[in-house]
Amino acid sequence: MFNRMLSAFGIGGPSVDTVLDSPHAVPGQPVTGQVRIRGGSSDAEIGQVVLSLVTRVEGGGFSFGHDDERGDGAEFFRSVVQQGLRVPAGQLVPVPFQLVLPWETPITAVGGSALPGMSVGVRTELVIAGARDKGDLDTVLVGPLPSQNKVLDAFGQLGFSFRGTSVGTGHLPGVSHELGCYQELAFFPPGQFAGRVGQVDLTFVATEHVLHVILEADRRGGFSSGGDTTGHLRVSHQEAQTTDWASAIDAWLTQVAARSAANPAFGGWPGHGDHHQQDQRRGGGTGGMLAAGAAGVAGGVLGGMALGGVADEFFGDDEG
C-alpha cells in the first residue's frame, strides 16, 4: 500500500521516454513514435497515456490556453493514446502512437530550417491514480503544406525580409477555425515600399481541402489616417499550387501603398466566384499578439515559380 501511494506521487513510480520516428512533420499528417514506459519499484496502473501539442514563442508569454508552470509552452491540442495500462515493476512497456497534427498547427520550419524563436513540441503525460505526471517535450519541426510553400516562395521572390512570428488567441472574421488560436508571420516589405508600408503579416488557416491566405499591411507615410489594410483569399490547395502568388501579392501591395483612406475597397478576383471573400478588419476578440524577435530567414524562402494570368485585383480588401 505504501509503495502504491509513493508511486502516485512519482516516487519509485514508472518513468517515461517518448521517441519520435521523425522530428519532421506537416499539418494534417501523423507524427508517429513510441511512448516507452519503464516500471518503477512496484507495479503501476496507468489510467491514461496522453500526448499533447504545445507551442511557445521566445521573448513573450502566451495569449491562449494555460501556460505550463515549467515554461514548456501553451497546449493547443491533446489526445489520449492509451487507457488502462498495467506496467509491471522494472519492465519496459512500449506504447506505439500516431498523432495527427491539426491543419492549423503553427509552422516552425521553412526549407528544413527552424524559424527563430518559434517551437512546437509533443508532451507526454501519464495519469496515475488521478494524478498527472508531465514528461519532457519532444520538439517537432512543422513545415508548411505544399500550398503554403507556394505563398512563402512568392514572398522570397519579391524580396520580403522575415521579421518574426507570433501566436494569438481568437478567430479571424469570416474564417472557420479548428483551434482557438492562429499564427502570424511578420515580414518587412520590399525596399520600394519603404516609408509607405511598415510591415506585412501573413496568416494561414488551413483545412483538409481549403487554404485561407490573409495578408495585413501596416500603411504608413502619406496616408491621412494610416491604419491597416487586410486582404483575404480562400482557395483550394490545388488552386494554391497553380496560382501566380508573386504577381498577385505585388499587385495587392502596390495598391495598398498607393491608395488613400478615402479610396473604395478593391474589387473581386474575376473568375473565382465564391472562393473570393472580403475580410473585415481584425478587431476586438482576436486577442493580443505575441511578438517574437527573430533574425531574418536567409535566401528566397523556397524555390522558384513563374505562372501568369492572375488579375491585379486579386485579394478582397477592407480598410483599417
Rank of each mutant, 00 (worst) to 15 (best):
L6W: 05
I11W: 12
P14Q: 06
S15M: 07
D17K: 12
D21C: 11
S22R: 09
V26C: 02
V26H: 02
G28I: 11
V35C: 14
L51C: 09
S52T: 06
S52M: 14
T55S: 01
V57T: 05
E58T: 01
G59E: 00
G59D: 02
G59T: 02
F62A: 15
F62N: 13
F64I: 08
R70F: 08
D72H: 06
D72Q: 13
A74L: 11
P96Q: 09
P102M: 05
T105W: 01
V110A: 01
S113H: 04
P116T: 02
G117K: 00
D133W: 12
K134A: 15
D136C: 04
D138E: 15
P146Y: 02
P146R: 03
S147V: 10
K150V: 13
F155I: 12
F155H: 05
G156R: 02
G159L: 00
H171F: 11
L172P: 01
G174M: 02
G180K: 05
E184N: 13
L185M: 15
P189T: 09
P190A: 11
F193E: 05
G198S: 11
F204N: 04
A206N: 15
L211H: 07
V213A: 10
A217Q: 05
R220H: 08
F223A: 14
S224P: 07
H232E: 09
L233A: 13
R234H: 14
A240N: 07
T243D: 03
D244Y: 03
S247D: 12
S247C: 04
W252E: 10
S260V: 06
A265P: 09
G271Q: 06
H275G: 10
H276S: 13
Q278F: 13
G285A: 14
G288I: 05
L290N: 00
G300P: 04
V301A: 10
A306K: 06
L307Y: 03
G316A: 12
